[in-house]
Design a protein around this nucleic acid. Structure first.
Length: 436
RNA sequence: GUGGGUAUAGCUCAGUUGGCUAGAGCGCUAGAUUGUGGCUCUAGAGGUCGUGGGUUCAAGCCCCACUAUUCACCCCA
């Protein structure tokens, strides 16, 4: 029989046990914090009718969508979690209560050329708050507090939540030039952090923006200071544009209430260069970076949008949400060794029965320890104590229980600490205490 | 879509201006007196050098094609 070469598709991430354990730790932390903030879980299908997925898509995204035909049905794999959410909310509108707060952590697919840290199959961890007709700006303020709690707990080092408001930008640009151009400019300005002021100025000139305006745009966008200072600066610019004024008020509120919710100023900065590529953000926008690893890019981003489900319902559904690109984040963290695999197993203790005679006794011990919530396993396959200890060692199992004739006679078990290399003879009650 | 790089053991890679039985480290297996792992030492297994063609007395090395893979740009999370 010929052997088929085992291989995984490029752009698809597959982890070893010790890596997966770390991945799940991050996953669980995010999930726990989402739930703590009152978001309900949602799990929509990976596959949808093609027309659902394609409704919003266009241009670059559309080319990247995986599409299938099964029988006469056209199918597509979701490329984010927002489109399925839009469909879901439109579909179950009458059965949901609003504001609808949901989280979803799941896989999405994009058939683009794989690159370092960019995958064709990747996890996103999203929260969104959807309103029926209207949605208070206070929700925009709550989002940073959730981001703050998550990354505080994950402890990847100092991070900064950058915040901006599209209305402020749009209002400012509207005074200078026509709307179409403003949109393109936003995309370029968004990159200023990455490519620098000069490169941005150059690209703007290519767009045939007048020199005078290039200067204005750059110096506006690069206004720096504390949040309070920046708001004062923006107010003092004397721009009499309705959008601008509204945006500024929103920004002010978001900062104020996010602070009240416990996000320290050190972790929350107004940054006028943040624009986000996506067109559908209309108000608050967020981007979070690790201070010591700015090169990783944004680890969490999102914003406020006016109308979630316009393609699927006539209802107006404004929302605000964020997305953590979990696969990419994890990959980068591993690469930079901010996250390092530790254990290959979930097991706290391994029972080693010395021979057949010890099996009955060992099984009873296993049963009792598991009943007490211990993550305990028993070894059947390895021969001899040497092989068993080696097995435990390779997987970083912290404790080993040796059960042989002596132990059975005395009812005291040999309890070995693999890390310290020490061992003692203990009753099962003492072992339960040690493991809990 | 555009432009580069790479392809040799399970993994990471050496391999000189082409030269005779293709190497290292890690990992794996076994042993160093039969209930004690990690460290050390010893031994062993494991490769039609991506595929096809060409040049040559001789190709892992040079040339061509194909395939795979990877990085960057574009765009995005």
């Amino acid at each position: 029989m010929s052997i088929i070469e085992p291989k995984t598709l490029p752009g698809f991430l597959e982890l070893l046990p010790e890596e997966q354990i770390e991945f799940n730790r991050i996953y669980d932390t995010i999930r726990k914090n989402y739930e703590r903030a009152g978001f309900v879980p949602l799990d929509t299908p990976l596959l949808e009718y093609e027309e659902i997925i394609l409704a919003k898509a266009g241009g670059e995204t559309e080319k990247q969508i995986y599409r299938f035909k099964k029988g006469d049905t056209d199918l597509a794999l979701r490329f984010d979690l927002t489109v399925p959410l839009a469909k879901y909310v439109a579909l179950y509108f009458n059965q949901l209560s609003f504001p609808f707060k949901r989280y979803q952590i799941g896989k999405a697919f994009r058939g683009e050329k794989p690159q370092k840290g960019r995958f064709r199959e990747f996890y996103q961890a999203d929260i969104d708050i959807i309103g029926d007709g209207e949605l208070s700006i206070m929700h925009d303020a709550e989002i940073p507090s959730i981001i703050y709690k998550i990354f505080k707990e994950l402890d990847f080092g100092k991070f900064t939540i950058r915040i901006n408001n599209r209305k402020v930008l749009n209002g400012f640009f509207a005074e200078l030039l026509e709307e179409e151009k403003a949109r393109e400019i936003l995309r370029i300005v968004d990159k200023i952090d990455k490519i620098g002021k000069e490169a941005v100025a150059l690209e703007l000139q290519k767009l045939r923006v007048e020199k005078e305006n290039v200067e204005k745009i750059c110096s506006f966008v690069l206004i720096k200071g504390t949040n309070e200072e920046m708001i004062l600066r923006l107010e003092s610019l004397g721009i009499k544009n309705e959008q601008f004024t509204l945006g500024l008020l929103e920004l002010k509120n978001v900062i104020r209430y996010a602070t009240l919710l416990g996000v320290p100023e050190s972790h929350l900065n107004i940054d006028l260069t943040i624009a986000r590529g996506l067109d559908y953000y209309t108000g608050t926008v967020y981007e979070t970076t690790l201070d010591e690893h700015r090169d990783i890019g944004s680890i969490c981003s999102g914003g406020r949008y006016e109308n979630l489900a316009e393609y699927y319902t006539t209802k107006k559904l404004p929302g605000v949400g964020i997305s953590i690109g979990l696969s990419r984040l994890f990959y980068k963290l591993m690469e930079m060794r901010i996250v390092e695999p530790k254990n290959r197993t979930m097991v706290d203790a391994l029972i080693i029965p010395m021979g057949e005679e010890a099996l009955d006794y060992s099984m009873n011990i296993l049963k009792r320890l598991r009943e007490k919530g211990g993550k305990v396993c028993i070894s059947y396959d390895k021969k001899g104590i040497k092989q068993n200890l080696n097995y435990a060692n390779k997987q970083n199992i912290p404790y080993v229980l040796i059960i042989g004739e002596t132990e059975m006679n005395t009812n005291l078990l040999t309890f070995k600490n693999m890390r310290e290399g020490t061992q003692e003879v203990l009753s099962i009650e003492d072992i339960i205490k040690k493991l809990s």
